[in-house]
Simulated assay, not measured.
Amino acid sequence: MSEAHDIVKAHYAAAERGDLDGMVEKFADTVAWTEMAGFPYAGTYVGTDAIKAGVFGRLVADWKGFRAAPDELIDGGDGTVVALGHYEGTYRATGKGMRVRFVHVWRVQDGLITGFEQFTDTHLLREAMA
């Protein structure tokens, strides 16, 4: 597997451990993280601090046991890695759980993550929030 594959795999492993520093260790200074339209935290966040505050911090605050679990990593060979997986967790405000499929597209250049884009069924996720 490529270096890009290993970097993305390490990100998910750090997330599973709850290791925020490990999750962002390979983020480029100008990493662009895009949560798709319709997702509760939709938008593009640029830079580690913006991603921590706008995405990761909110997920921890709003969801109990939130996980982004990759079932498969597909190495594009050009610094692109695609993850097929699922989200799961319980929305704290409603007590409702969810399990929703996702596709994540990662961009890695010179050993650093430069981009991330999320695709998921936002309707299913929002059902847990209602």
Rank of each mutant, 00 (worst) to 15 (best):
111 G>Y: 06
100 V>I: 13
31 V>A: 08
38 G>F: 05
72 E>S: 12
84 L>T: 06
78 D>M: 05
25 E>N: 02
67 R>Q: 12
123 H>L: 14
6 D>I: 02
92 R>W: 08
109 Q>L: 06
35 E>S: 04
80 T>S: 14
8 V>T: 12
106 W>A: 10
40 P>G: 07
38 G>R: 04
29 D>K: 05
38 G>C: 02
12 Y>K: 07
45 Y>S: 05
87 Y>D: 01
40 P>K: 01
67 R>W: 11
68 A>W: 13
36 M>D: 03
121 D>H: 08
50 A>N: 14
26 K>L: 05
68 A>F: 11
113 I>G: 00
30 T>P: 00
105 V>C: 07
45 Y>R: 12
11 H>S: 04
15 A>Y: 10
112 L>K: 13
99 R>Q: 14
44 T>N: 06
93 A>N: 12
115 G>D: 06
112 L>D: 03
129 M>N: 07
121 D>I: 08
11 H>F: 13
41 Y>V: 03
74 I>E: 07
9 K>R: 15
68 A>N: 11
39 F>H: 10
42 A>E: 12
12 Y>P: 03
58 R>Q: 15
26 K>M: 09
20 L>K: 08
104 H>I: 00
74 I>S: 10
60 V>S: 13
65 G>I: 06
81 V>A: 01
116 F>G: 02
31 V>Y: 09
98 M>F: 14
11 H>P: 03
14 A>S: 11
106 W>D: 03
124 L>V: 10
55 V>Q: 04
93 A>Q: 15
122 T>K: 01
98 M>V: 14
48 T>S: 07
37 A>C: 00
18 G>I: 10
124 L>I: 11
104 H>C: 00
102 F>S: 00
1 M>I: 09
111 G>M: 10
80 T>E: 14
34 T>V: 11
77 G>Q: 05
26 K>P: 03
129 M>E: 03
75 D>E: 07
64 K>Q: 15
82 V>Q: 12
50 A>H: 08
110 D>W: 09
98 M>A: 10
96 K>P: 04
77 G>A: 11
97 G>Y: 11
93 A>K: 15
28 A>C: 06
79 G>H: 06
14 A>D: 14
117 E>L: 02
4 A>D: 01
22 G>A: 04
14 A>R: 06
68 A>L: 08
26 K>T: 13
65 G>Y: 13
94 T>P: 08
26 K>V: 03
120 T>R: 02
117 E>N: 10
12 Y>A: 05
71 D>I: 07
121 D>Q: 04
34 T>D: 12
63 W>S: 07
119 F>P: 05
100 V>Q: 11
127 E>P: 05
62 D>L: 04
86 H>V: 04
52 K>F: 00
11 H>D: 01
85 G>E: 02
32 A>F: 03
108 V>G: 05
44 T>Y: 01
108 V>H: 05
53 A>K: 13
59 L>S: 06
99 R>K: 14
60 V>C: 01
65 G>K: 11
51 I>T: 08
23 M>R: 01
44 T>D: 03
6 D>R: 15
107 R>H: 11
118 Q>K: 01
3 E>R: 14
33 W>T: 14
19 D>S: 09
62 D>A: 10
91 Y>T: 00
127 E>H: 04
